[in-house]
């Protein structure tokens, strides 16, 4: 259980770039058999949302934001033994960032979420060129694709990318999401068939990963 006091201690370690302080907290939580879902949503996601807000409000520098991202990415890797031990369902998803999108942590967490639910979550990384994505999709033939944008100025890149993918794979279900939709921008995708805007990891879980549970 992550109470507010623990969260604030973690957040303070994160903002000061104390990898060892954060590691100690995360290892302690893993040892206490906390669910990966809670760790992802109530610690990693919440803290990085706050980091993003502090950056937007000019309360922390971009360097500090990058430091927090690096530390969080490392901490996420501590959860992998649990994430990758899930029973496989045989379903495959490709998770990627648009060209020009360098913030990858949200997309990576989505990829891990797929893995946690027994999917093969192929994660392609930040700033993935469209041609490489098409080539990889042709090889893997996924059941689903998820594309993330973390900053709103990548909306145009996302639209271009979606258009290109639909041209080659018209029936492929595509999920779009990320903090880039925080201030809107979803209307461009509403009329498109097989395209869904996902606003949270919970929504991803209930609508696509574990729909029978609802």
């Amino acid at each position: 259980m992550i109470d507010n006091k623990l969260f604030l201690t973690y957040q303070s370690s994160l903002l000061s770039g104390s990898r060892s302080g954060c590691t100690q907290i995360v290892n302690g939580l893993i040892k206490s058999e906390i669910s990966i879902k809670e760790l992802y949503i109530n610690l990693f996601q919440r803290s990085m949302y706050e980091v993003g807000t502090l950056w937007e409000q000019n309360k922390i520098s971009v360097a500090t934001e990058h430091l927090c991202t690096s530390v969080t990415e490392y901490l996420i890797s501590l959860c992998y033994p649990s994430i990758f031990s899930a029973e496989h369902t045989g379903k495959k998803a490709i998770i990627t960032c648009t060209p020009g999108e360098y913030h990858q942590i949200g997309a990576r967490m989505v990829a891990d979420y797929f893995e946690l639910h027994g999917w093969d979550g192929y994660y392609l990384g930040a700033d993935t060129p469209a041609d490489e994505l098409i080539k990889f999709t042709t090889e893997k033939l996924p059941d689903l694709m998820a594309i993330s944008i973390s900053v709103s100025f990548n909306h145009a890149n996302l639209l271009r990318l979606v258009d290109k993918i639909r041209h080659t794979f018209p029936d492929l279900t595509i999920l779009v999401g990320g903090q880039g939709f925080r201030w809107g921008g979803d209307e461009a995708f509403q009329s498109l068939e097989n395209i869904y805007l996902i606003r949270s990891l919970d929504e991803l879980e209930t609508k696509f990963l574990n729909p029978q549970a609802t």
Binding site: S70, Y74, S77, Y80, R108, D112, Y123, G125
Partner: peptide, 10 residues
């Protein structure tokens, strides 16, 4: 480099 390292670790 850090992103690449983390993706490789994954």
């Amino acid at each position: 480099l850090n992103q690449e390292l983390n993706n490789l670790t994954r």
